[in-house]
């Protein structure tokens, strides 16, 4: 089977073929590697480690392709789900902490959602660790997947194994809490 032939298949066909012959997975690997890598990297902040975890995630995905059923979510969501779980697997087993990049919290739309005024940005930045500390990892993921990765609530729900409505409700509940923490600390 030549490379040209492989590229003619659709994604779903490729997944089906990959179940028989793992070589068919390569185009998908190439397509999604960067996406998954960045997702992992933003949480571990280490290139080699991110590479390891990403490979692990793809390894898990490849060995469990039979489990993947197309339910309206792209393969990327399934991969993200595996990658995130691999990340937290690593954090737990190695007693390491998830990295949180603070710059995201002042540069994305979340600033508007929490209603941070322009002159409050500096304060918000210094307050952030304290405020974010109060969030559970999954809550942090909700916020980051939504605002930094720009994923839909449906997809986030799928990644975190909750319903779409639940993802939405929780996200806005968390935003409300962030806002409250911030206002309380500043007043």
């Amino acid at each position: 089977m030549t490379q040209d032939n492989i590229s003619e298949y659709t994604e779903i066909e490729l997944i089906e073929k990959s179940k028989e012959d793992k070589r068919f997975f390569e185009p998908l690997y190439k397509k999604y590697y960067e996406q998954v890598f960045r997702l992992v990297f933003s949480r571990v902040q280490d290139i080699d480690l991110a590479g390891d975890i990403t490979s692990e995630a793809f390894g898990k995905a490849l060995s469990h392709l039979d489990d993947y059923k197309y339910k309206g979510y792209p393969l990327s969501a399934w991969l993200a789900r595996i990658a995130l779980n691999s990340c937290y697997d690593y954090f737990r087993s190695q007693k390491k902490q998830r990295h949180v990049s603070l710059e995201n919290y002042v540069s994305h739309d979340i600033v508007f959602e929490v209603e941070i005024e322009d002159n409050e940005r500096e304060l918000w930045l210094t307050m952030l660790p304290e405020v974010l500390e109060k969030l559970k990892p999954a809550e942090l993921e909700l916020i980051e997947l939504r605002f930094f990765e720009g994923k839909s609530f449906a997809e986030i729900g799928y990644i975190l194994d909750i319903t779409e409505g639940n993802a939405k409700t929780r996200t806005y509940r968390i935003l409300k809490r962030l806002k409250r923490h911030f206002k309380r600390s500043t007043s």
Partner: peptide, 10 residues
Amino acid sequence: MKYKFVDKAK
């Protein structure tokens, strides 16, 4: 500390 905060992502 639950998380490790960094100012800027690499």
